[in-house]
Amino acid sequence: MDAFIAQVLSGLVTGGIYASVALALVMIYQATHLVNFAQGELAMFCTYLAWTMLDAGFPYWAAFAATIALAFVCGVVIERVVIRPIGESSVLAVVVVFIGLLVIFNSLAGWIFTYTVKPFPSPFPAEPLFGNHYVSSHGIGAIGVTLVVLALLYAFFRFTSLGLAMRAAAQNPVSARLVGIRVGWTRALGWGLAAAVGSIAGMMVAPTVYLDPNMMAGILLYAFAAALVGGIDNPWGAVAGGFLVGVLENLLGAYVIGTELKLTVALVLIVGVLVIRPSGLFGRVTVKRV
């Protein structure tokens, strides 16, 4: 029983990471109806930026904040420079551009920072919190950070007019222009926010998996699974999906198939959800008038 609880809790910890990346994916999907294959690599690259600052002696939280800001700028610039010009052309063109970005960030990281694995510090104490023996304090801290990010995003989209404008632009860009919303910029802003959220996920996961240019590949796959399980157009669903998938991964790994087939589990989840229930568990079906 103890072991089971430990597995569930550590599943929640990884689930929190998946939830963050899934949330970033959903944000871009909502704004543009695109699935960003480069999301993971962008997060990885930003984590390297954080590492560079920490290496240069910045205090942790200063580097953390600066990384989020840089990630935001990065996201905005990418949208302006490569995503917007490709515009509404074919899905293939868009996917190719995403894959191009994935490869560029991956190789850039390898080029600048080499492929050797680097340790990445955690801002949380080394000894477990509250004397528990289930989860490390980094695990608890990571979940806490995920929840704070969620709450902030929720508040932003729910209570600010910019958040409202972003939702409106994502739903109905033509009408959004007719109320004076600069839809191009809300999209870029969406990319910036997604990149920022992704970078937080990167910094939270790096202490456990260590930093290397390929650290996000598996995580991205699970984030895809999480977003799809929860419904790719539903931020809450994505977060729930993230935790669900994280726990599922850990339990399956511990009790059923071992840890060696984790990625296959993600593959099965992705294909399964897409084929059986494309809207996911909590995917919103637009309310129709009865």
């Binding site: 699935v35 899905v91 897409l274 084929v275």
Partner: peptide, 25 residues
Amino acid sequence: LPALRLEGLYLALATFALGVALPQL
């Protein structure tokens, strides 16, 4: 066969997952 039911982007996603997962398998 299952992939048939997937439109452009989702097929890309499913095959991407296949490509990532295979080495482990």
